Simulated assay, not measured.
Amino acid sequence: MTMRRIRTIGDPVLRTPCEPIAVVDDRVRRLVDDLLETVDQEGRAGLSANQIGVGLRAFSWNIGSEIGYVINPRLVEVSEDDQDGPEGCLSVPGLWYPTRRALYARVVGADLDGNEVVVEGAGLMGRCLQHETDHLDGRLYLDRLDRATHGEAMRALRARL
């Protein structure tokens, strides 16, 4: 297992949709180990494979006392009820903006043995599941901001350059 470097905004891997994992081999097992180790830090709720430079559909989470992963996740359900709260991203360090998400989300995928995995939750877990599946589709949370907030975020990013 290796703690991996987080790719940040501007890296094209973050804007490229990830490929499904067709075969679980040693490379995929190492990827999952690295995702679990890298997400297991204070203040980290989730981590997608492309955030560590790997264009495959997998992510890990660290919510409350639960750390886990899912391979080839598909967002299959979100609630009509929503939440609007501050959201940040390891790939957009130091910036937090109010982001509207569904309150509840459910993801279906697989584990390393090919067994179906269902991950669901409300609040922070629901937000995490949506955030990480967005990453795997090549989207950042900044893409979900309203127009005025998006402009503010872009100005803040330019000021850092």
Rank of each mutant, 00 (worst) to 15 (best):
M1P: 00
T2S: 04
M3V: 07
R5W: 08
R5C: 08
I6G: 14
I6P: 12
I9H: 12
G10Q: 08
D11K: 01
D11L: 00
P12V: 10
L14R: 03
R15D: 04
R15C: 11
T16K: 15
A22C: 08
A22E: 15
A22I: 12
V23G: 11
V23C: 05
V24G: 06
V24S: 00
V24D: 00
D26N: 05
R27G: 00
R30M: 01
R30Q: 01
L31V: 13
D33G: 00
L35E: 01
L35A: 05
L35F: 08
L35Y: 04
V39Q: 13
E42S: 12
E42Q: 10
L47C: 14
S48M: 13
A49L: 14
I52P: 01
G53P: 00
G55Y: 10
G55S: 15
L56W: 14
R57M: 05
I63Q: 05
I63H: 09
I63R: 11
S65D: 01
N72C: 01
R74T: 07
L75Y: 02
E77W: 06
V78G: 08
D81W: 12
D82P: 10
D84V: 08
P86R: 13
G88R: 10
G88Y: 07
W96V: 14
Y97W: 14
P98W: 03
R100N: 01
A102D: 06
A105F: 03
A105C: 03
A105V: 11
V107W: 05
G114H: 04
N115C: 03
N115Q: 09
V118Y: 01
V119Q: 04
V119S: 14
G121T: 15
A122K: 14
M125C: 11
G126S: 11
R127P: 10
C128D: 02
L129R: 07
H131T: 14
H131C: 14
H131M: 03
G138W: 14
L140N: 14
L142E: 06
L145F: 08
D146K: 06
G151K: 06
E152K: 04
A153Y: 06
A156G: 09
A156P: 02
L157K: 05
A159I: 12
